[in-house]
Design a protein around this nucleic acid. Structure first.
Length: 482
DNA sequence: CGGCAAGAATTTATATTCTTGCCGGTGCAATAAT
């Protein structure tokens, strides 16, 4: 495009960050923004997505509001930016003391970068302050949260479009590492993109992560295999579970049966323990973490060598996010999914439990006043949707659709495990990624098919070519020093 | 859903069969009680 813009950008990159070259996607994103197009940038993990809005703000002098899903993430970002001499940064969160908060709100115009959660913007007083000083770029970090969390976990993620309107429609930059075209569409729709706006997409493929799935006959066998794997592959490593209890249990088992230092990580840990575990892991004081999906976002450890899934996640987006934490240093790494027939029941139950039942929706639509007295967490969602003035009929439709979508996504996840075609190609196809890969060494490995019909799940037939696979054990030997 | 463990019940005098219960993730903000 414009040569001049590119020059300005490179100068800024050198001046503010000390780099000579942009990473994949950064320059394209910046040019799109400078041309006044709201932009959804889907860039693989580790490409430095935050540099995009930081450099944009430095060059244009504009004020930025960054929507971020986690307080810890905001705190890390603020710290990181201050370290990089970007001092006019603040995170507005519930962890601030009354004094800090008052001071910040009274001096808000001093800050060029403001971090906030979707929830805190519901606070009228805080929102008015932000609105008054004026926002010229609205950044939505980890934008897949809109789709992943908005409909049934953090409904305030569905209010971001409204927030944008109330802020007088500033330019938007949405950032994520994983989004299928469908998810990307939903993100741009929620954020009121128009036809001029841009979606920048780079391949989700991570060539240095070998993909493996193994099917085992029993939990015992799975545990033995796990012990074997973590004792063979040189870490650091990460094991994902769908259950907090199992994560604890296996962490204990591995501490006993191997020489590794293992800790578990999930939402039952208090903040202190979470911090402690994460930092010990980052500083190589721990070899291995047994975690639920609570672990990962914002964890910047470059040398994770393997990610093992003890349980399957609910969809391939989550799977790609989770395995993407391996090999950020570009070195050969591996993702192994261990599967036992029936494992998907956990996900299926989680799925069902995350959505309000038809009878609850119908009942409370008629008796909304009763909801005010219910403290139970699971009714918070219904409260939030009723507060958005959505009719019972629309809600029923909405959740039925949500359930169908999540079911479909789970079926694809299971199909990925059982598919005997190239795993990498499978993922690329799922994301409708145009990159064509050549199946070869260190690509993937699979085991034999299981009868999915036995699970009561219907599947679409996939056309597939038979591919020659290398010997898994030989590969393991070659890849990893024992 | 479905598999498994703990406890109850049945008789098989101490082991077996039957029944019941349980599993299952992600966080924000703001408030209340020590």
């Amino acid at each position: 495009m414009s040569k001049e813009l590119s020059e300005i950008l490179h100068e800024g990159l050198k001046k503010y960050f000390g780099f000579d070259e942009f990473k994949e996607g950064q320059e394209e994103t910046l040019i799109s923004l400078l041309n006044r197009h709201s932009t959804l940038a889907i860039l693989p993990t580790g490409t430095g997505k935050s540099l995009c809005y930081q450099l944009f703000a430095k060059i244009t002098g504009r004020r930025v509001l960054v929507i971020s899903p986690l307080i810890s993430l905001m705190q890390d970002q603020v710290e990181q930016m201050k370290y990089n001499k970007l001092t006019n940064v603040v995170a507005l969160t519930s962890s601030l003391s009354r004094e800090e908060r008052n001071y910040i709100l009274h001096n808000l115009e001093k800050y060029q970068f403001i971090f906030a959660s979707p929830e805190i913007l519901k606070n009228e007083y805080i929102f008015q302050k932000i609105k008054t000083i004026g926002i010229e770029l609205l950044v939505v970090d980890e934008a897949h949260c809109i789709v992943e969390w908005g409909p049934d976990f953090r409904p305030d993620y569905l209010l971001l479009g409204e927030i944008r309107e109330k802020l007088k429609n500033p330019l938007v930059l949405a950032l994520t590492a994983t989004a299928t075209p469908k998810v990307a569409n939903e993100i741009t729709r929620e954020l009121n993109f128009n036809s001029e706006d841009k979606v920048i997409r780079y391949s989700v493929d991570r060539p240095n992560i070998m993909l493996a799935t193994e099917t085992l006959d029993s939990e015992k066998e799975k545990n033995n295999r796990l012990i074997e794997l973590v004792s063979t592959i040189k870490g650091p490593g990460l094991i994902y579970f769908s259950s907090k209890k199992k994560a604890d249990e296996i962490a204990e088992l591995l501490n006993k049966k191997t020489r590794l230092k293992v800790a578990s990580y999930h939402a039952d840990l208090n903040l202190e323990d979470r911090y402690s575990v994460q930092h010990q892991f980052i500083n190589n004081k721990l070899d291995l973490i047994c975690a639920t999906s609570a672990f990962g976002m914002g964890v910047n450890k470059k040398d994770i060598r393997y990610v093992i899934h003890y349980h399957l996640p609910g969809d391939l987006e989550s799977y790609v996010q989770e395995i993407g934490r391996a090999g950020r240093d570009g070195k050969q790494s591996i993702a192994i999914l261990l599967y036992c027939l029936g494992d998907e029941n956990i996900q299926y139950q989680i799925l069902k439990g995350s959505l309000p039942t038809v009878s609850d929706i119908k009942y409370y639509a008629e008796h909304k006043e009763l909801l005010h007295n219910i403290k139970n967490e699971e009714f918070e969602l219904l409260k939030a949707f009723f507060a958005m003035n959505i009719s019972a009929d629309d809600l029923l439709k909405f959740f039925a659709e949500r359930k169908r979508d999540k079911n479909q996504a789970l079926i694809k996840m299971i199909d990925y495990i059982n598919s005997d075609k190239c795993k990498r190609q499978y993922i690329l196809d799922y994301f409708q990624d145009l990159k064509k890969i050549k199946h070869g060494e260190n690509c993937c490995t699979y085991n034999k098919n299981y009868n999915l019909k036995q699970l009561g799940l219907k599947l679409q037939e996939q056309t597939k070519e038979k591919i020659e696979f290398l010997d898994y054990k030989e590969l393991m030997k070659k890849l990893f020093a024992i």
